[in-house]
Design a protein around this nucleic acid. Structure first.
Lengths: 168, 168
DNA sequence: CGTATTTCAGAGCCACTGAAATTC
DNA sequence: CGAATTTCAGTGACTCTGAAATAC
């Protein structure tokens, strides 16, 4: 009576609709969510968050900076950066001191412990990225990174700023 | 007092740290966020949300279904699907009726207006995807979709193993 | 009885807004 | 004065948990 060929599927084993399956924005979301879980989970196990890494890395590469500058470099919202610096400061990974040259500002400085922590997080992140991209070959990873970078650059510019390199 | 002359850059025009710039998880997040903004904004302008589209598309492709089934097909959490169906039902895009065969269930059915709405959202989504992927060639878009699909499939599988932990 | 379904109430996170206080 | 910086208080979207009510 019930032909096994005609029956579509037992109702639950049906995948997502075709229209959703190849919807780029959806794929980006899902992949990003998986990455967040993977990275977030491992960082949490090490008592860190992704913003910790971003702030520490920016401090090491560019040196001490005000919170506003750090916010622009990392993409962390100025409001949220306050909490991030609080967390890093209570762990003695950064130091927050008033700027003598401009007393509105705080100067955030990486400590020795902060540098060590960054190295640790670097290792964690490296391993996590590798797991995240596991199904891709080395060449594909490069292509993916290149394409995503282009996408981001394309949409980041037209955001609101039309500041060209005009002397300024 | 702007006393900096031989500084490499005016402090603010420095990009993100090298380590962050090519961090795949970060790129995925940024690209996904841009996609969400683009899609979310345009859908909002049409009085819709992305979950509306997912639910309507699933209903059209697979036909009427219970909320639990719809939840599995779309990835919308069973809890949140309630609100989505509410919103769609008040707009007369779907109909929610008790299932005579299993009175725990509701049968969600696409209405004629729902079908028309889906066609409209399809057009909006199509245009948005095209804008989102604007900097990529047709071939690149295919590659991106293929790679993301592989990534997602690779990490989606291991979810079965954690099934026995909860639910009791 | 255990299990599945719908539903609500709410937690937690994240990106973001608005405004106040301070200083330039 | 306007503008920038730090900070807090709070909003809204989204993912997810827990539990209750009902039906299998």
């Amino acid at each position: 009576m019930d032909s096994a060929h005609d029956m579509p599927l037992p109702d639950d084993q049906v995948g997502p609709p075709q229209r959703l399956k190849s919807l780029p924005s959806r794929l980006l979301n899902l992949a990003a969510a998986q990455g967040e879980r993977m990275i977030g989970g491992r960082l949490a196990a090490a008592d860190a968050r992704k913003w910790h890494y971003a702030a520490l890395a920016a401090l090491e590469e560019y040196g001490s900076a005000s919170q506003a500058t750090l916010s622009r470099r990392t993409g962390i919202y100025r409001s949220d950066l306050v909490a991030v610096i609080n967390e890093l400061a209570t762990r003695d990974l950064v130091e927050r001191a008033p700027d003598p040259d401009d007393r509105r500002r705080n100067v955030i400085t990486l400590t020795t412990a902060g540098r060590a922590r960054l190295a640790r997080l670097d290792a964690i992140l490296d391993a996590a990225q590798d797991d995240l991209l596991a199904p891709l070959t080395g060449k594909e990873r490069e292509e993916l990174i290149a394409m995503l970078t282009r996408l981001i650059a394309h949409h980041a510019g037209p955001r609101e700023s039309e500041r060209e390199r005009s002397g300024r």
